[in-house]
């Protein structure tokens, strides 16, 4: 690297670290929220209230 390796490799390194970090954080965050949702749905809560009382169509999840 013509004597400039000490500047070039850290530059590529920091790019790799930030990009990998953003990707991993996004995937982890999304999975954690999917788990929250699954846990809530398992308790029987739905957007329209609990099963017996149907409040009509206020849901947007078509």
């Amino acid at each position: 690297m013509g004597g400039y390796g000490a500047f070039i490799w850290p530059a590529y390194g920091i790019v790799a670290i930030v990009m990998a970090g953003l990707l991993v954080a996004a995937v982890r965050g999304t999975r954690a929220r999917a788990r929250d949702l699954a846990a809530l749905e398992a308790t029987g809560v739905s957007r329209r209230g609990n099963p017996p009382q149907s409040k009509g169509s206020d849901g947007d999840d078509a």
Binding site: R33, D36, L37, R47
Partner: peptide
């Protein structure tokens, strides 16, 4: 998903 969780 987070918004659905909040709504629920």
């Amino acid at each position: 998903t987070a918004r659905r969780v909040r709504a629920l």
